[in-house]
Structures are given as C-alpha cells and as structure tokens.
Design a protein around this nucleic acid. Sequence first.
DNA 1: TGCAAATTGTGACGTATTTCACAAACATGG
DNA 2: CCATGTTTGTGAAATACGTCACAATTTGCA
Lengths: 223, 223
Amino acid sequence: MTYPVNGKVPVPTLERLATYLRYLIDLEHDKVSTISSGEVEEQTGVNAAQFRKDLSYFGEFGKPGVGYDVAELQSRITKILKIDQAQPVILVGAGNLGSALVGYPGLQEHQFNVVAVFDNNVAKIGRKLWNLEILDLDLLAEVNKTAKARIAILAVPRGAAQTVTDTLIGAGVVAILNFAPTSLKVPKNVFVRNVSFLQELAVLSYHLSHDEEISAEFPPSPE
Amino acid sequence: MTYPVNGKVPVPTLERLATYLRYLIDLEHDKVSTISSGEVEEQTGVNAAQFRKDLSYFGEFGKPGVGYDVAELQSRITKILKIDQAQPVILVGAGNLGSALVGYPGLQEHQFNVVAVFDNNVAKIGRKLWNLEILDLDLLAEVNKTAKARIAILAVPRGAAQTVTDTLIGAGVVAILNFAPTSLKVPKNVFVRNVSFLQELAVLSYHLSHDEEISAEFPPSPE
DNA sequence: TGCAAATTGTGACGTATTTCACAAACATGG
DNA sequence: CCATGTTTGTGAAATACGTCACAATTTGCA
C-alpha cells in the first residue's frame, strides 16, 4: 500500500522496470520532463496498463491527468532496484565473453562495479583485463573478504561451472548471473539468473519454421 | 494430437527444449541410452511433469515403464527446433560482444553458422574476426542475397540498433537476437528476442536487498 | 500367464501474469 | 467554479503457465 513493498513482486515486473529505466534516462537527456503511460507504451511496446500496474507494486508515482515526472520516476526506480549506489561485482572467467562483459560500458552506468576478475588458467593469471589484474581462482574467497561482492558473473565453461559456483557461495556471493550452459545447484537463499544465447537462438529458429506468415520469404530451394 | 503441432507452443516450453537438448547430448557422450522424466528433473531442476507436458506438444516420445530413448529424443528435439541442419546467421557489430559471440563454440555445435559479419566502423572493415572478414554494413543487403540468412545477431550500440534492424529486415532477415538495450520496432512477421545483461543484473540486485533470508550475510557495516 | 513395479501422457486444477474497464484525481479554459 | 478532457491506480476478468494425480501401458519375474 505504501512505498516499500507489500508481498511479492513478479519477476517480469522487475525486468520491465529495468526497461523503463533505460527509456527514462534517454528522456532526461532529451529534456522531457513528463510522460504518460500511453507514451511509454508507444516507445517500449509495453501495454500502458501493464506499466501502471508494475509501478503500483511500489506505491503511487504519477498524477492523474498529467502523467509521471521523468526525473522522479527515474530516481525511484533506481532505488527500487538498488542501483542508486555502486555495487561490487566479481567476474569469474576471463575468456572472450568475460572480457566483453567487463568492457561493457552499461555496467558502470548502472552502478555495477566489477572489482575483481578470476580465472584458473595459469596463462591468464597476472595479465590485465582492461584495468583489472586477472587473479587466481583460488584467491576468490580471500579477496572477497574485503571486496564483499554479493553479486557474481559466471562466464566459465560448463565443466567448471558448478565447482566455481560452490566457491562463490562459500565466499559470500548470493546472486549469480550465469552464462554457462548448465543448471547450477544452489541453496535456496542464492539467486541465479541464466543467460543462454543458444536457448534464445533455438526459440527464434523454431518460430522461423513454424510461423506461417514467414515461410516462403525465401523460396525453399528455387534451383 | 500427432507429431507436428496442434496450436500454440508456449515460449517457455521452447526454451526448456533447448535445455533438455544440452543435457541429452551430455548423456549420449556418457553412453546413457535411456532416461526417465524423473531423472531429467534431478539433473535439470525442471519438474518431471513439466518435462512430459513440454514434449506432449509435439507427440509421444517415451515408453511407459521405460522412459525415453536418449538418441531418439535428442534427434527429435533438434528437428523440432530446426537445428538438425546448418542455419546461416549474420552478425552485425564487431565489437567486444560480437567478437565473443562469433567465437562461442556452442554456436557451431548447434548448427548456427555465422556466415558474415558487418560493421560500419571504417577502422574495422576489412579486418578479420576469427576467420571472417568484417564487411561494410552497406553491403548487407547485397551479401544476403546469396547468404540467405534469416537469423541475425544484433550487437551494435543502442543508437544504431533501429536503423540496422530496418536494413536487416529489408535484407530478408525475419528473426533477430537483439543485444542492444533498446526495444526494436519490427513488423509482425519478424521475431525478436532481447538479451539484456543489465536487466538480469537489476533483477538480482533487487532480490539481494528484498529477500529476508539473505540480508545480514555481510553485516551492514561492521566497522 | 499373471502380478507388481515403473513410468508415460494428459485432463483437471492451481497459480501467476496480463489485460480490461472504470471510478477518482487533476488540469484547463471559459 | 463548473464542465470537459486527460490520465492514474486498481479491482475484476481473462489468459497463460505450471503442477498434480491417475488411468493406461510396458517390463520383468515368479
């Protein structure tokens, strides 16, 4: 009923909050001061009622007849998502993907600070990834005693994923963004979000061949 | 009622099919010939009934009292997802992320062949990304007349995303895996799957601060 | 062969999420 | 200060998705 939260917030709602936030930041750059839920729908494709309901989990944000104050809404969403202040994050896996992730400017912009990078490959340990030294995986627990990251990004091969996960949890990590194509076994108090490119491509591939309007865009085999 | 499809298959089901497939490939390597839905649940965390229902959208796969033949199930899922034969894919954006994606061995393994890479950055055009030459974005339509990719991976900055999308669609692409943090406007016959690291991290960040069992893992400020 | 054990496929039920639709709140202009 | 137009916040309805529970099928063994 008031600001914080009542019971449970649907995960899809949280996902969309991040979307709104991105959009609001753009609007602020464009000096737009107010928006309506209808405008949000036009821009983001999210149904206007959906937008309002999403916000309603966290209190009242708009003025009837007017809309939402861009700056205030932006500020309140960052607070809800707890990205209003810097958060330490550790990365495990300094391969191509890990490297790309650390270099992704959006992380900093959204207050996720990669404070340490780990790998178990001797050839990599000691080298620099952007401005961070790649550390021995064995040091993880020790390093995180001071780094105190509670979020980790896991970008290691499937075979190593579960072992590393156990290490992470032992080191105090309670939220893992998993890029390894395997399902991690974790205690109930640890949150995992899986990202799987192959899964996404597979879904696209399926639609390609099963949706009528599409087939015959390129004829099956003209020659 | 029979093999192909009845009406609509839930997207979550398709996502899980990709998960099962990964698992089945491992099982084949381990020379396991048969599995039950209960074993799938143990290994993947997906409820056994869910697994069976997912399959039921596409026909009957198992034998009561026995289970599922690993090889056959694997084969049928690849056919359902249309990854039983190589599919051409084009990549736009040869930055860090794009580079990591092309190099990801899982793509080849699942029959997604990156056949061309495009970028609009003159400094990059002509250089090689793995074994592919980076081509000028302006050549996209022309190149895809012969490449005939219907799937594209979009790994460009937000600002360029919509323009590139329009180009892609003009070139015959009907499925886009979008890594740009923006919502693309596409005609109804084009499918888009969005991948947003920030969204995922934001969800984790929210849980971190709102789930009771977790707080006090690291005391608020001991010193 | 007949019975017990295992496991599938699926209708019925339950939960989660989205969409609808409308009263209440506010703004504007005469 | 009232009438009109806009837009919010939210119960209620609709849809989508997940889980349960059990009849039906197969196996293996006495």
